[in-house]
Nucleic acid binder design. Structure first.
Length: 321
DNA sequence: AATGGCATCAACCGCGGACGG
DNA sequence: GCCGTCCGCGGTTGATGCCAT
């Protein structure tokens, strides 16, 4: 591609980091903060390329990292998020405080894939493995390589353009999961999926709720744990911009507000642009999206905008993590 | 105890998007 | 609009540890 290398490879260390290198990096970032990765190694006296430093910091040295095993809740959350976002590890990691994209990616490939196969679920499509077309691996410990399992979703960033495309991840999620029109019974949000791991995001609706979902029979043949309702709807973003002011009073008020934008506060970043992905329950499709109503609310609450994708979840109901 | 196979995870690589000039 | 640079992401690799034989 003719692209210049990110660093002079002849004069940089590679491979495992030494304790001394770690200390140098930590000390430098403590003093100067993150950023400017290209110049950081030289400034910090490290014979590493900037990317390597960044990776080391983000994946290993950051003080807010949560070490240790993933909990069952985290497992289910990852599965849920993956079913919605695909291999967007950074987005998934953004919803798991203290976890890194690399860590989650590794964990997915080594543990969760296996777990899903054992449940009879295709980890890429999040649909039950059809024995006729996609036979499960002979041994649960050796799931097929990613190359062998076509990724059901594209790697394009999820933005309003991609959402509107018929080939997007979100679209796939919806179509693959046979989203139904939500009924009018409610107080929450739900998304009907085949996979049944919706409960990790938010368990909404009772058995009666799901049973009362009219006209859809996909889940009827599934075991009980596959019948959770999670109705996912997509709305175009509101044209309103989000203010940069923060009003603590309103933030506080939202804590008692059961509307889904509560979660946005939990997850922090929000933008006034791009796509909103709304769980809705008891709303018609054109009502399901809280975007329309969010403008006014957001004006009073919003914060700096960073990741354009982070508002994918801003209207989700709170979940127990 | 030695060895081979497998699992895990830190680190690397290449690419694409964002951004500024 | 074009180009160069930087940053971040996702896929892949390689080192290491564990376990069965």
């Amino acid at each position: 591609m003719g692209r210049s290398p990110c660093c002079e490879k002849e004069h940089t260390n590679k491979g495992a980091w030494t304790k001394e290198e770690d200390e140098r990096l930590i000390n430098y970032i403590k003093l100067h903060g993150e950023g400017c990765w290209r110049s950081l190694p030289k400034a910090a006296g490290l014979l590493r390329c900037g990317k390597s430093c960044r990776l080391r910091w983000i994946n290993y040295l950051r003080p807010d990292l949560k070490r240790g095993n993933f909990t069952e809740d985290e497992d289910e959350l990852i599965i849920n998020l993956h079913s919605l976002l695909g291999n967007k590890w950074s987005l998934i990691a953004a919803r798991l405080p203290g976890r890194t994209d690399n860590e989650i990616k590794n964990y997915w490939n080594t543990h969760i894939k296996r777990k899903l196969y054992s449940r009879g679920i295709d980890p890429q499509t999040h649909r039950p493995i059809n024995a006729a077309s996609t036979p499960p691996p002979t041994a649960a410990v050796s799931p097929p390589s990613t190359a062998a399992v076509p990724v059901a979703t594209s790697n394009k960033k999820i933005n309003s353009d991609s959402i509107s495309s018929s080939n997007t991840l979100a679209h796939d999620v919806i179509t693959n999961n046979n989203i139904i029109n939500s009924n009018n019974n409610s107080n929450g949000f739900h998304l009907v999926t085949h996979s049944g791991y919706a409960n990790a995001i938010t368990k909404v609706g009772t058995d009666e709720d799901s049973n009362s979902s009219s006209g859809v029979t996909v889940e009827e043949s599934l075991p009980p744990h596959h019948q959770l309702n999670l109705d996912l709807s997509i709305g175009l973003p509101s044209s309103r911009q989000v203010s940069s002011s923060v009003n603590p009073e309103n933030l506080k008020a939202q804590e008692h507000d059961q509307k889904p934008h509560l979660l946005y506060k939990w997850y922090g970043n929000i933008t006034g642009q791009s796509v909103c992905l709304c769980y809705s329950l008891g709303l018609q499709s054109d009502q399901a999206c809280y975007c329309k109503g969010m403008g006014a609310t957001a004006t009073a609450t919003t914060v700096t905008t960073t990741a354009t994708d982070s508002n994918l979840y801003r209207f989700y109901r709170p979940m127990n993590i």
